[in-house]
Write a protein that binds this DNA or RNA. Sequence first.
DNA 1: GTCTATATCCCGATAGAC
DNA 2: GTCTATCGGGATATAGAC
Lengths: 199, 199
Amino acid sequence: MTKPATRIQKKNRTAILAAALEVFSQFGFRGATLDQIADAAGLSKPNLLYYFPSKEEIHQQLLTSLLSAWLDPLRKMDDAGDPIEEILGYAKRKLDLSRDYPRESRLFANEVLQGVPHLGDTMPALKTLVDEKAKVINGWAKAGKIVAIDPHHLMFLIWAQTQHYADFDAQVRAVLGRDDPFPEAFAFMEHMLRRTLAP
Amino acid sequence: MTKPATRIQKKNRTAILAAALEVFSQFGFRGATLDQIADAAGLSKPNLLYYFPSKEEIHQQLLTSLLSAWLDPLRKMDDAGDPIEEILGYAKRKLDLSRDYPRESRLFANEVLQGVPHLGDTMPALKTLVDEKAKVINGWAKAGKIVAIDPHHLMFLIWAQTQHYADFDAQVRAVLGRDDPFPEAFAFMEHMLRRTLAP
DNA sequence: GTCTATATCCCGATAGAC
DNA sequence: GTCTATCGGGATATAGAC
């Protein structure tokens, strides 16, 4: 599938991917149907399959095209910055993603929950990035800027805590009542991380 | 569906529920098929449907029969105990569940991730339990035993952190290499919670 | 490029013999 | 109680007209 030539093709492909994100993130890969996606994109089902060869291909393109943006907050964590503020900034950017892009979060959550059946071969690259940042955190700890701490589990903590608000939104809302949890969530996370990390 | 009479009936129903847990937790409700469940239970598909009237019913029975055990760790958090140790004990019991019952965790994760389509009417009961325990935590804070903290977000933190190791196991393993993460996970969580909660 | 119609397959559930 | 055989619905994907 090469680059779309015309403006309308580009628009349709974009609409399909947006619709697919909506449907896949809510129902998972198997739970989603092409009828739902075509409907949400404002196209007929055969027309949808004119732009993408298969359901699998739409899903794969979604995942791979979003993955890079999803890892950006971690890439931006800067070796040269203030350690506590860098980690806090990373956590905040991650929580912003949960607030602003909950469907993307749930798309990845579905994928990981089922054992990364479509993203298995990108896991080594994730490990490479995480290991690299783990070294940065270990350096900060050795310099006495933060407490000595397992950097991988710190990463899991930040992932778990931030993504929880997007992925398990239904439960969060049910427990809190109707509220937008994000302002308090950030204050809470800042308290937790500052205390956890203080040297 | 009344109590099964014979020993073999009981055994088959148990085998079916065990097989269904395996399959539903891995593939979600829609992703799971009765063929897979029947196969895992060592029965034919029609025979499976002799014991349960429908796929939906198997899933529902699984969820409701496991829900109570799933909330037990929280119920056991004791108003009269030492606050920090009670919260820590709760978190430890929850992490033990993730280690010993990861399939149950993923079963609920799938359900919540898709908006609790089958557990919607049990959410009020969950909220009641959580609100009750939130009051206990608020009491501890007022007495100066722990820091003043939002008890609901503390709950989310513990849920997110502990369930992460079961629900996103594929990612955890990919990032860490091959290791069993649980010993370090508990040490990490204890460090994090003690510092977060100290008055 | 987009549609209607349809082929093909898979899944949940049922019928009926044993 | 358990099986083989099958129904009926729904899903992915394709054919072919326009």
